[in-house]
Design a protein around this nucleic acid. Structure first.
Ligand code: FES
Ligand code: FES
Lengths: 142, 142
DNA sequence: TCTTAAATATGATTTTTATCATATTTTTTA
DNA sequence: TAAAAAATATGATAAAAATCATATTTAAGA
């Protein structure tokens, strides 16, 4: 469902949410702790900046950070930018999108859970998720 | 979550469950209707035969079919063979497996649904799923 | 027993995804 | 205003997934 790229991107954003408190942090200092190749992450961050899910400034003392607006985005926004809408809505059996009218044999045993997951990815904000980590209720993997 | 290979394999097995009633059907006659490249499907079927999820006989009048035992397997068996156990249990954020003790920030909003999906994939048999299609309650996509 | 039709085995090619490298632009600061 | 430090842009390479091709084995039937 999620590509490595999306996983990387989500981890990076969560890391920023937790560790940059309006402070700028450079790629290297994100990629190292979350264990993602630096140049690869740098590339992933570009579209996120362009879509205003992440903020950045160039030059010395520059780096990446999240402003209030960024913090109120949802995980699904990140997935949309990195993997695209199609992947997100694709049917469990076909390459095309999930079809309510002509459900595949797996559809009915999945719809509810699927919808639930999508709703959560849509509604929980980055800020909320980061809070859970700060409270010790969740952990950033790897 | 599911690779194209797994999707193809599941569709092929379901197709067999529906269309081969102990009759042997050759790859071409599976791959054509479910819209999967023939040579690719042929390759995918080999491990399924080896793991006894699908039956086959060689030579003229040969082909693939499902016996009673095959019909009582679950979709998750197919995924296990094609994608492997790891992928199935991997965490939403990391490449490693989902970790109850050190849950990632997405874990809690996913566990229940995730477990539900896995249970269904584990418990519904191929026979049951095929029946839904025969009854017109589900459809084989593409 | 020979021919033929099928699966099976193996390998080559293509496409996509992941990764690495390098040059350019922007901003800070000396 | 020049040098340095960062992001950004672009392209090259590597690895993995998907696809295609071909040779081998098995079984049926003439
Ligand atoms: S149609 Fe296949 S998952 Fe909805
Ligand atoms: S999904 Fe990430 S730890 Fe369970």
């Amino acid at each position: 469902m999620l590509s490595n790229s999306s996983k990387y991107a989500i981890k990076a954003v969560l890391f920023l949410a937790i560790h940059s408190n309006n402070k700028r942090v450079m790629v290297k200092d994100i990629s190292d702790p979350i264990n993602v190749p630096q140049a690869y992450l740098a590339k992933l961050l570009q579209p996120l900046v362009k879509e205003e899910l992440v903020s950045s400034v160039r030059g010395p003392k520059g780096g990446f950070y999240l402003n209030e607006e960024n913090l109120n985005h949802s995980v699904i926004d990140i997935i949309r930018v990195i993997d695209g809408e199609e992947k997100l809505n694709s049917c469990m059996l076909s390459l095309e999108k999930c079809n309510e009218e002509k459900p595949c044999p797996l559809h009915n045993m999945l719809v509810v859970s699927r919808k639930n997951i999508l709703n959560n990815l849509e509604n929980r904000t980055i800020k909320e998720l980061a809070l859970a980590v700060e409270k010790g209720n969740a952990f950033l993997p790897l």
